[in-house]
Every structure is written in C-alpha cells, then in structure tokens.
Write a protein that binds this DNA or RNA. Sequence first.
DNA 1: CAGTATCCTGACAGATACTG
DNA 2: CAGTATCTGTCAGGATACTG
Lengths: 129, 129
Amino acid sequence: MDNEENKDNFLEWHCSKHEDVSNCMEECYVKQVLSLFGKKYVMPIIRALLIHDKLRFNEIEEKLGGSPKTITSRLRELEALGLIRREVFNEIPIRVEYSLTKKSKGLEDIFERIAIWAKNLKTVNQNSG
Amino acid sequence: MDNEENKDNFLEWHCSKHEDVSNCMEECYVKQVLSLFGKKYVMPIIRALLIHDKLRFNEIEEKLGGSPKTITSRLRELEALGLIRREVFNEIPIRVEYSLTKKSKGLEDIFERIAIWAKNLKTVNQNSG
DNA sequence: CAGTATCCTGACAGATACTG
DNA sequence: CAGTATCTGTCAGGATACTG
C-alpha cells in the first residue's frame, strides 16, 4: 500500500527510483562507495592518512604490506573520487606525498557509526550464540 | 604529539589499538562489514527485503538475476551475521521465507548517511571536474 | 623514490544439471 | 521449491623485475 511508498522514500540510499535492481546495480553510488571501501587496503590507507596527515608512497606500501601495483591502484581510485590528494615534488630522488582532502572528512562520522553498529552486532552474536 | 593521540581516539572505527595495520586487516569489524556490503547482491538483497518484508528464495533470485549459488552464498553470509532470518515451512513444495532481523535496523541510518555523502561527492566532482 | 610492466595464482561469480 | 554440485571464465591481487 502506501506503506510501500513510505519505504521507497527512505530508500534514498539505494536507487529508490527503480524496482529493477539489475539496472540499479550499475549506477548506485552507495554500492560503488561500499564496494570501494570493502576493497583491500582502502580503509587502512584512509586510516593511515588520518593518523599521519601526509605519507609518501613508500611509507604507505611498507605500513600496509601490499604489492606496489595494488597500492597504486587503490591510491588512484581514491584520488579519482577526490578523497586523497597527490602532491609531487620535483626533487631527486622524487618525492610524492599523499594526504586526505576535505571531502573525506564526512567519512569519519560514517565509519564511526559503522564501528558502533558492527561492535553491537558482534556482541549480540556472541551472547546469543 | 598528543595530536596523534587525539586522532587515535576517534579512530575507533578502525582498530584504534594497533598501529600494525597488517594485523588490523584480519580482525577489523568495520572492514569486514564494508567488505560484505560491497559484495555483489548484498545491498540489493537488503533493499529488497526492506521493501517487501518477506521474500522467498525464488523471488530474490528472480529480482536480482544472479545464479543460485551466489545468492545462496550471500544469504548465508547475511544470516551468519544475524542480519536476516530464514524461516522454513514444511510444505510441499517446500517454502522458505527470508526477512530482515531487528539488527539490520541500524543499517537504514548508516546507508542513508552514506547516500547523502556519496551524492555530495558526485555533485562536487561534477562541478569541479 | 615512485611507480609501471609482466607473469602467475586463487578466489569469486556465471551457467547448468541435479536432488530432497 | 530451495537449494547443492560441478565446471568454467574472469579478474583482483601477489611477486618480481625494471624505469624515469
């Protein structure tokens, strides 16, 4: 009934306009964002940059332990979304520094909420399991 | 300095206790949750169940268009986290109904925030790109 | 130093056939 | 109907060597 309509309203977060989910999966921002954040190294990169403000490629690679290809890939994806900034210094040897942009600020709040929710989830599961 | 310490406090969402991120990646709830939500069909399943309250395996499969193996896998993962309930009715032919549990309620808020954030992100990128 | 190029492996998802 | 079993293809990611 209009119960269904109400639900569609708060379903802003996932392609509220179409019931056709296959279509939905291609373009949903939320899914794209979650997909990226679920990828290996993305959250650790963000976290490391929150802690250290600026990090060089080398430092990130060492902290996270991944192969350069994967780290580069993640950094490019985050840069493409405008979440991190890449600064190149023409020195010898070359220096590149990564840092978070203003856009990433909203993430702290989101991640914190997820953390709280996830912790409750774990706790409840342990108690009732 | 203690600037660093302050940061560690609000970094609750990602293994605030260890600087060793490689270790972190194994056990971080937040990453696990994001990882799951980024997987194919997970968000569409949650969305479909938010809209329809109860759905049978068949219905989910048809709406999402995936192979039974993948859908089953996702449903099991969500069930293991306690996010969805699986009810079996011993009829012939057998009937199984899936629905969201109370635990998944917190997700609406989280997803909505992500949606808002993601939309702003897109908008800003379009304007400045 | 900050990556790129290359090769390789394993996990994931699709398609299909089959079962209680 | 609600899955499981199997086989296959794709692709993310690891390891390594190399370059501006």
